[in-house]
Design a protein around this nucleic acid. Structure first.
Lengths: 215, 215
DNA sequence: CATTAATAGTGAAATAATTCACAATGTCAT
DNA sequence: ATGACATTGTGAATTATTTCACTATTAATG
């Protein structure tokens, strides 16, 4: 069987989120059309994506939510919880920790790291906290697979190397600097809000230019 | 001239960030090789991307940082500051407001919105704050082009519609729900940390499966 | 000033991803 | 049961994107 294309993997992750949401609401089935509408993507595309999972839907009536969710979980490896950590417990880090993370069934944040020891003492968070120089040891010992970086830009690359030393498998980088993987065994995603703003600005600027040229 | 591919636009935004960073450090030139290394992308790819800007580099010695930055700004519309707002001033919203945003030269956050009026009174933030029902009026009046959504999931779609009513051009959605644009005039980017974790998990799961099959 | 080493730019080739068109299969109302 | 309708799955065509291979140009060195 052919490898699953990256864009497809990305959409499957979003579909998984959607299914989780709808399952919680008690919905049982849905069509490729509805998935496409919710994701802002054509239904063709969705059906094609789902072929990588093998037989999934029922002609004429769409997909059974529970079954489809299980199949995605099986294919992409969401069947067990993975251990994660957060590095950088400033306002950003603590905000994420209090909102997003604890609602996921797929990940356990089991450690937090920060350079500022004093800050560690005053935080009221119910996960173990460590200074950043402990990163390699703790990551290795606890078999942590994923890390979320919420740091000021300068330190991020240095910290990333400590994580890699500990054997981390994936990093989501929220720090305002582009990290790249020194060796290829570690996957890195960079999230930068300013860049997203720029991207959107560029889209509507270019759209306008094109319209001007046409007219 | 042909339209610039989306992946290229996305990389150009990252290159722009990088150039800004290096310019601040006083560096004057750099090569496609170095850009590629920093972004985790092949140098071919970078050179190809830059051809969409017209003549840019100097054979044998690379790109002049200031010039290249100006050319990207010109092509993608970063030559003037754009007005932006933030909707949702919980921990996440205020954290972003205090870290990231004010450091950008390309965007001005000129308004904040929240449903909780009491919260608005207690926040110590130096931008005007409004209740969410004022969104359409304020966005239109102030000609706000971009919005950042940091809300609990349920309300996000509803708020997005208010923004669109006001004539917003782009939305970066941080809320844990996939928003899609009802009409095609508004560009939306969804950022979801859990989805990024899932994506990375999927990558190294699939890599492992492939390796197992091969061995 | 000649020689060597870097490096950009680019058409062409290769690869990847999306879209299409339609057959096959199921559902639902009557 | 039957007809009308909805929906999936998929090979083929199309489109988009990346990679390659090579030329031309410049910088740096002795």
């Amino acid at each position: 069987m052919p490898a699953i294309p990256k864009p497809t993997i990305s959409r499957l992750c979003k579909i998984y989120s959607l299914l989780e949401e709808l399952e919680d609401k008690g919905q049982l089935k849905l069509s490729s059309n509805e998935i496409g509408r919710r994701l802002g993507v054509g239904s063709h595309n969705i059906r094609k994506d789902l072929t990588y999972l093998g037989e999934t839907g029922t002609t004429g009536s769409g997909y059974e939510i529970k079954k489809l969710k299980d199949q995605i979980a099986e294919s992409l490896g969401f069947t067990r919880k993975r251990k994660a950590c957060i590095v950088g417990l400033g306002k950003m880090g603590t905000a994420i920790l209090s909102n997003e993370m604890f609602f996921s069934k797929n990940f356990d944040i089991i450690a937090g790291f920060d350079t500022n020891i004093n800050r560690l003492e005053t935080l009221k968070i119910d996960i173990p906290l460590y200074p950043t120089y402990d990163i390699p040891v703790v990551v290795k010992r606890e078999k942590i697979e994923l890390a979320l970086l919420t740091l000021p830009g300068e330190t991020a690359q240095n910290i990333a190397e400590k994580l890699i030393e500990g054997g981390i498998k994936g990093i989501v980088n929220f720090s305002p600097v582009v990290l790249s993987s020194p060796d290829d065994k570690v996957y890195i995603t960079n999230i930068d809000i300013i860049d997203e703003f720029r991207f959107l600005s560029a889209l509507f600027t270019l759209e306008k230019k094109e319209a001007d040229n046409a007219g």
